[in-house]
Amino acid sequence: MQEEKLVVLDGRTYERLPYDGADEPCPGCGAEFGQLHVAGCGYERCPTCDGYLVTCMQMEPDSHTKHD
């Protein structure tokens, strides 16, 4: 399980989302249900918009917004 429980986006700190696939491990990093993904896993979800975290982390500062 991963130790880093927080992620910073646009200068704000959020809790990372645990893997929620109950049937099988994450295909990208092998995380089991309830565990955090390995850092940089392409399947980890963004805690603000539910997109892929790796994509959100590459956005320009102040361009990331929550999708309501």
Rank of each mutant, 00 (worst) to 15 (best):
R12Q: 15
E15A: 12
K5M: 12
E15Q: 12
Y19H: 15
E44P: 03
G40T: 02
T13D: 01
D50V: 09
F33G: 11
M1N: 06
V54H: 05
V7N: 06
D10P: 02
C41K: 07
G42M: 09
G21T: 00
D68K: 07
G28V: 08
P47Y: 15
C26I: 03
P61W: 00
V8Y: 08
Q2S: 14
H67R: 13
T65G: 04
G34C: 05
V8P: 00
P47N: 12
H64C: 04
H64Q: 05
P18G: 08
D62V: 09
H37E: 08
T48I: 13
L17D: 00
T65F: 04
E24L: 15
L6D: 03
R16A: 03
L36P: 08
V54D: 01
G40C: 11
E4T: 01
Q2L: 09
G11W: 00
A22H: 04
E3W: 02
T55H: 10
Q58V: 13
T48A: 13
E3N: 06
D23L: 15
R12A: 15
L6E: 07
A31T: 10
V8E: 02
R16Q: 06
D50Y: 14
P47W: 11
E32Q: 14
E44W: 10
Y52K: 12
L9F: 14
A22V: 05
T65D: 13
L36R: 03
Y14N: 02
L53D: 03
E24F: 14
D10W: 11
E3Y: 09
Q58H: 10
D68T: 14
Q2D: 11
C56A: 03
Y19F: 09
E60N: 13
G34W: 03
D50W: 09
T13F: 07
M1H: 02
Q35L: 00
C46F: 12
Q2P: 00
L36N: 08
P61S: 08
M57K: 10
C26K: 01
L17E: 06
D50N: 13
A31R: 10
H37G: 01
C49W: 12
E32T: 06
P61V: 02
T55A: 11
H37C: 10
V8F: 11
Q2E: 14
Q2W: 00
P27L: 13
T13G: 08
